[in-house]
Design a protein around this nucleic acid. Structure first.
Lengths: 200, 200
DNA sequence: TTCCAAGTAGACCGATCGGGCTACTCTGAC
DNA sequence: GTCAGAGTAGCCCGATCGGTCTACTTGGAA
């Protein structure tokens, strides 16, 4: 793995746990086992550039995963929520969303905040397209997509604060009608999901 | 205004803009025009205690405002969203939610993270009670309340990152059926709001 | 009137911050 | 074989971090 990728991966991991301002270069160097000088060889503008690149990469990873999805929009939402439940449980609620962290650190690192905005817009557009493919009109698809992205990001924050996955389970129920309790991510079998009372 | 209250108010304002790790005591002292020593007279445990108290106070202010509300749950949600639209526009998208900031800083300041969790739970319960008063069953009320709180918190983050109030307008439409474009906060007149396609 | 708790002003501490620097090593292209 | 670019190791810088301290002022209660 290249030095640049190691730096970005370490930065993403630390952003998730400590946020932009709370992540020092010393921590990134220790975590990535990279020499101090190598940061400035790969990111001449220093921390701001590294954090911005980390945000861009993290956002693009989620985005490409969303574009790869072939089922319905609600199935995609269920998968994303199940992934976050797993991530939070595995890290004892320590690791949140790096893009949200970059968004909240926009005053400290402006470039990263812009990258976060780009990521959110790409996610919303991908989900809206999925909703449209499911038959929703453009406007309703955009509204539903925005609601889903916002709810997921908010639920991650509530889950970390309350140290409970309940917020994620509840929004899964509200957004998709799934109980969210099952271990499986999406409706694997062809069983017709019960539509949530919020929809239709 | 007492020294303690000035410190807390300054801390809340700085938390909203720079987050927990990004808020230094020097900035709090400058903003509140208080002597350095006075921090430790009022908050013997220093920054952690100040940030925790600021989070608790900020959460309680919103909570008491929610309890004061007398209309429907959807009207309350519309009011909260309109308030956030106004706050974001007035601060050029610089000031976010202090409770969310404390939640994301849980690794840096644990006490504040707990206070954030308490605030989120109180908000959700207040909104769920309002939904129950509107006729929803307990379970549906809790789900709808959690979805609303998560969506609002997430939308604030998306709005800051994209420097646009569109996420808030869209979740207002998704959660309440309101267009969110009007300046007035809640349906002031007795006109029957059109239910969103997401509800009913 | 006295006196003490709270506040002010400001120096000071060790630690850490982001960043720049030199010197040395390694490796692949010419 | 040479040489340039990238990486390593580590020291150094000024600034800022949270926190502690002394000295002085002030205002209200005993």
């Amino acid at each position: 793995m290249t030095v640049k990728k190691r730096l970005v991966d370490s930065a993403i991991g630390l952003l998730r746990r400590r946020g932009v301002a709370g992540t020092g270069l010393a921590a990134v160097l220790e975590d990535s086992a990279v020499a101090r000088r190598s940061i400035y060889l790969n990111f001449p503008d220093g921390k701001n550039q590294l954090v911005a690149e980390a945000t861009r990469v993290a956002g693009e990873r989620v985005h490409s995963r969303m574009l790869r999805h072939e089922g319905t929009a609600e199935e995609l939402i269920a998968i994303l929520i199940q992934n976050w439940i797993k991530e939070l449980q595995q890290t004892d609620f320590r690791a949140g969303c790096p893009v949200a962290a970059a968004a909240m650190g926009h005053e400290v690192a402006a470039e990263a905040g812009i990258a976060a905005g780009d990521a959110f817009e790409a996610w919303t557009e991908a989900l809206a397209s999925s909703y449209e493919a499911d038959g929703l009109a453009r406007r309703e698809a955009q509204t539903s997509a925005t609601l889903a992205v916002c709810a997921i990001e908010g639920a991650i924050i509530l889950a970390q604060a309350t140290r409970s996955i309940e917020p994620l389970q509840r929004i899964a129920e509200g957004l998709t009608g799934a109980s969210g309790a099952g271990g499986e991510a999406a409706g694997s079998s062809g069983e017709s999901r019960q539509l949530p009372w919020l929809l239709l």
